[in-house]
């Protein structure tokens, strides 16, 4: 029962959604629309489950004094801080349970949630991702060794695209006469993006889509059951 009913729910819901595409009339269209709204609500609870699970895992690490446990206290504190001020005084367009917190907003210039978001969260996020600029450079040093034709194509395509999108690329080939304009670096970059890159991306998209379609069918038909847990 604990496995058969969920499998039946998955089958029925999946089949109704697919049928509603071909018969968009009552009752399929209506049920499908309602199911998609339900999905949004349950997915919202799933996100909250994820956050609470993170809280639980960190609490476990602290309680059992696992390696670097002191740092996880900060995770919990910052989580509690962000959630509390968000729920108490709301966000930019939403009041919290204590209203809009005008007194605090007048003092710090904005709502506390937005203050924390703009000054701490956004800076942390942007720096964390910008850090990848350094690592991507070292990855490029290792990947861009023209040993084979394949790696040479990778190297040439990356360099041409990067050069073509900078002012340097434009300056390097800006002197070319009108008859050789197709060799202008920005135009080569545009050509690479528009044709061979699109072709490669299209092949990947089609291949991946067949994989997703196959997996969806396996789930709907109950062949793939790993999402239920256990064997």
């Amino acid at each position: 029962m604990k496995r058969k009913i969920p499998l039946l729910i998955t089958f029925l819901v999946g089949v109704i959604i697919i049928i509603s595409e071909f018969i968009p009339h009552k009752p399929f269209g209506q049920i499908s629309g309602e199911l998609e709204k339900w999905y949004l609500i349950i997915a919202g609870f799933a996100i909250i489950l994820g956050q609470l699970s993170l809280f639980k895992v960190n609490l476990f690490k602290i309680r059992h004094r696992q390696k670097n446990w002191q740092f996880f206290i900060l995770t919990l504190l910052s989580f509690i801080l962000m959630v509390s001020i968000g729920i108490f005084w709301g966000t930019e367009n939403h009041p919290g349970i204590f209203g809009n917190g005008e007194t605090i907003s007048n003092t710090i210039g904005t709502k506390p949630f937005d203050y924390l978001f703009d000054n701490v969260y956004q800076n942390l996020q942007a720096t964390m991702f910008s850090l990848l600029a350094f690592f991507i450079a070292s990855a490029a040093y290792r990947a861009f060794i023209a040993r084979t034709l394949e790696s040479s194509l990778l190297l040439v395509a990356a360099i041409l695209v990067m050069l073509g999108n900078t002012s340097l690329g434009s300056a390097l080939t800006g002197w070319l006469p009108e008859s050789l304009k197709f060799l202008h670096l920005p135009r080569i970059s545009e050509f690479i993006m528009k044709y061979p890159t699109t072709a490669g991306q299209r092949a990947i998209m089609i291949g991946a889509a067949f994989g997703i379609i196959g997996s969806s069918l396996r789930i709907i038909l109950g062949i793939e059951r790993s999402y239920l847990g256990g064997k």
Binding site: T10, I17, I42, I212, I213
Partner: peptide, 30 residues
């Protein structure tokens, strides 16, 4: 498992149609 079944069922149905249309048929047509 019950709400997960509903979410997975909806996602499978939606993805089946979405990827078939946008990533297979539309790409082949183009």
């Amino acid at each position: 498992r019950f709400p997960i079944a509903l979410v997975i069922g909806t996602t499978s149905g939606v993805f089946f149609l979405r990827y078939l249309k946008s990533d297979v048929i539309n790409q082949l047509t183009a």
